[in-house]
Design a binder for these strands. Sequence first.
DNA 1: GAATGACCAAATTGTATTTTTAGTCAATCC
DNA 2: GGATTGACTAAAAATACAATTTGGTCATTC
Lengths: 193, 193
Amino acid sequence: MAVVDRREQVLHAAAQSFSLFGYKATTMDQVAKIANVGKGTIYTFFENKEELFDEILLGAIRELRHRAEAEIHAERPFFENVYHALDTIVEFREEHELFLKLSQELRDIGTPQAKAALFKVESVVLQFLERLIRESMDKGAIREGNAEVIAFGILKLFIAMTVEWDMHHPPMRKEELKEHIFTFLTQGFTAAP
Amino acid sequence: MAVVDRREQVLHAAAQSFSLFGYKATTMDQVAKIANVGKGTIYTFFENKEELFDEILLGAIRELRHRAEAEIHAERPFFENVYHALDTIVEFREEHELFLKLSQELRDIGTPQAKAALFKVESVVLQFLERLIRESMDKGAIREGNAEVIAFGILKLFIAMTVEWDMHHPPMRKEELKEHIFTFLTQGFTAAP
DNA sequence: GAATGACCAAATTGTATTTTTAGTCAATCC
DNA sequence: GGATTGACTAAAAATACAATTTGGTCATTC
């Protein structure tokens, strides 16, 4: 390792720039400038812009997964685990500059890399949920079923009730959200007997 | 009424053109040509392009609502009514040229009028669902709750399991879809005792 | 008096020109 | 002598501007 770790410098600068300006508006010149490094140096560590971006994205995804996993407690009921994990994920996504910027970039100019990145994030969340569901089924905590489809449904339902609902309504209180998700996941709408 | 009903001619031509080319690519000259009518004639019946479009859209929405309502039978369980109504709505949306074209237009070029139109369609579907839910609550067929939120959740869940799922997976069989929707709406995932 | 299409301002599209950007590589540095 | 660099290039993107298209009008026609 050199006196100053140039690779780390580049990564740090790139993380900053991608979070602040998004994929497209981040230029390699700018990253080099922020990192106090010649532009050529970047290319000794990363093939190209996309690979550099992938590295940054992977870091963010790793943290997202980490936070979600921290919400899983084997002794807690399935529903509580799902709810808290999803709540954490949505909150993290709404706080993390990179995700915010990429969403905005996708909306505003439809950058393919932003689209691909957010799709990757969704895939990871789905994988996470699917595993949680599978394990809960194995433990007999919930009924058997197609874990992939169920994960997909639960995620979309949660996104709908939080992000999408808030787009045209005053945001729901957390307890109300939890109650609704609870209804869908544990009992449905059949009238109490 | 004149020998030929020019208003009807215009409406018919407009319906054809909007369905075939979408909102933006439909020109008033073209509508006039198809309708065998001078362009000025259109403006004796409709204020402007948007109003003409609104008339066509309203017609399509009226038919959509009509079909959905035909799926509601008071003696059938709530869940069956919801499932068949939504199935009909999604199918109609996937068949009707106008809706298809508007969705494509929104994806490809983001025409504001296409966005507004599809939002209007969703609002109507939500209203329809909300009413069905309210009435079922009043009848005691399902548990009490916030009908608007529940309608929103059910619609998004259904769209997710049909349209969105099919975008990245082989489409679900109808029975499988019905079973999953059934699970969410009537019992949830709690393990059988 | 209903219907029309030539007409116009505004918006859209096409195009030529300039600027910016990702990526390279010969020269430089330590 | 391998790591580092920034001037350089081809390609892409932004800009400026000309040409065309389009929604809407209204004097004229039927």
